[in-house]
Simulated assay, not measured.
Amino acid sequence: MREIVDQLIRWHEDGVRFAVATVIRTFSSAPQGVGAAMAVSAAGEVVGSISGGCVEAAVVDIAETVLDSGIPTHQRFGVSDDDAFTIGLTCGGTIDVFVEPATPDMGIFLKRIRNSVHTHTPTAMATVIAGDAPAGRHVLLVNDTLEGTLGSTGRDRVARTQVTGALHTGADSVVRFGGTGQECVDDVTLFVRTFTPPPHMIVFGAIDFADSLVQIGKMLGYFVTLCDARPTFATRARFPQADEIVVEWPHRYLETVKVDERTVLCVLTHDTKFDIPVLTKALRLPVGYVGAMGSRRTTVRRESELREQGLTDVELSRLHAPIGLDIGGRTPFETAISIAAEIISAREERSGVSLKNGDAAIHSGSGAVDPTLPFMVAV
């Protein structure tokens, strides 16, 4: 939803009625992930996408019905062998979509979300999609404070705990609480949209390849920092798209910055006096990816020097060096694409081989259809 928030706020401020459709579950090879959203105004204007074009026309019709009735609805879109090119997902996947009319509290919460995104404040908006609470009701979690209500103190107390847990994962998801024998007797299912700060990519080394990697990092949604100890090279003129430029020895900067499992560290300096100190630090941090540029000869020599610093086999196994996938890239942009592909592959724990030569599911997160919610089915 992040991509369409600004347009939704404009519609809200202009008094335009609209409905929002959100992918709340996916199964098999769904074209877009959980959280993908599109909105339809009363005038028929559409923003966003939930399937790359497979079912958008059908969702527009559903949104118009929701706007007329004011009642949220679920829809399941799938595909059958006999009807692959009518309404459905020709890729063979299935998606569950929740379509809701915009409410006054949604408009208010969207403004709070936009402010939180700008200030990098973790925020989550939860929407009731099934259960004892009214469907389409929203609550917002900002700075550990729950705004709005699900209608009772008990629901709000448990919802706050559940939404906090979902926010810590950083992923949009369905959460369910209540039922017999649980803390809250009400049975409520929420869809939680999370708005967390973007993941951090740190590029060490203000070399010519770094600018291309900075640009691709931005395209992938990272907050990108360029760090180099040499002020002559680490300049805004040379790296105009970097979110942050730090003139400091790489290892010293890394000692001051907060990292997590989404953080990506790319060491492009291929200079021993920079590489060894920063990699010694980096490979002992709980980050998602550490890569280092250099020839195979440089890589072997660097590994030996890192062992001298006390790094273990397990720690060294986390290092992607030479950095990037073997796609034959030569130019800075081709090299950056190679690095970006490896980062994605590592994040998703995929092989990095050509899809033509593999047999794993194309999209991660495949699973069986969950029958627990009421759905109208379109295939």
Rank of each mutant, 00 (worst) to 15 (best):
63 A>Q: 04
56 E>G: 05
44 G>I: 11
194 T>E: 04
360 A>N: 12
269 T>E: 01
247 V>W: 07
123 T>V: 10
267 V>P: 02
185 V>W: 10
207 I>A: 11
344 I>L: 12
247 V>L: 07
54 C>G: 11
57 A>S: 15
82 D>S: 14
36 A>G: 12
361 A>L: 09
153 T>E: 13
51 S>W: 07
219 M>A: 09
344 I>F: 06
91 C>L: 08
5 V>C: 07
5 V>N: 02
220 L>F: 13
7 Q>T: 14
141 L>W: 02
305 E>Y: 10
368 A>N: 11
170 G>W: 03
172 D>W: 01
161 T>D: 15
53 G>A: 08
181 G>I: 10
74 H>T: 05
97 V>S: 06
374 P>G: 09
82 D>C: 03
117 V>W: 00
198 P>C: 08
342 E>S: 11
20 V>C: 13
272 T>I: 14
332 P>Y: 03
88 G>S: 09
181 G>L: 07
49 S>E: 04
238 R>P: 08
198 P>N: 12
20 V>A: 12
315 E>H: 00
236 R>N: 09
33 G>D: 12
115 N>R: 15
92 G>S: 09
253 Y>H: 15
216 I>C: 01
349 E>M: 13
276 I>W: 09
224 V>D: 08
83 D>V: 08
259 V>K: 11
173 S>T: 14
232 T>I: 14
315 E>M: 04
204 F>S: 09
230 R>T: 01
73 T>P: 01
358 G>I: 04
359 D>T: 14
162 Q>L: 05
168 H>N: 11
15 G>N: 09
284 R>L: 01
184 C>G: 05
302 R>Y: 05
227 C>I: 05
38 M>W: 01
335 T>R: 01
268 L>E: 02
73 T>E: 13
5 V>M: 01
15 G>H: 09
251 H>Q: 15
241 Q>H: 14
18 F>E: 04
65 T>M: 12
259 V>I: 13
132 D>Q: 13
156 D>M: 01
59 V>W: 10
372 T>V: 14
369 V>D: 10
377 V>E: 15
275 D>K: 03
47 V>L: 02
233 F>A: 11
259 V>A: 08
112 R>F: 01
151 G>E: 00
220 L>T: 05
57 A>Y: 11
127 T>V: 14
359 D>R: 14
160 R>N: 11
38 M>R: 02
272 T>K: 12
308 E>A: 14
320 H>Y: 11
123 T>N: 03
225 T>R: 06
108 I>Q: 07
330 R>S: 10
11 W>K: 06
29 S>P: 04
307 R>P: 08
216 I>D: 00
208 D>W: 03
78 G>Q: 08
347 R>D: 02
21 A>C: 06
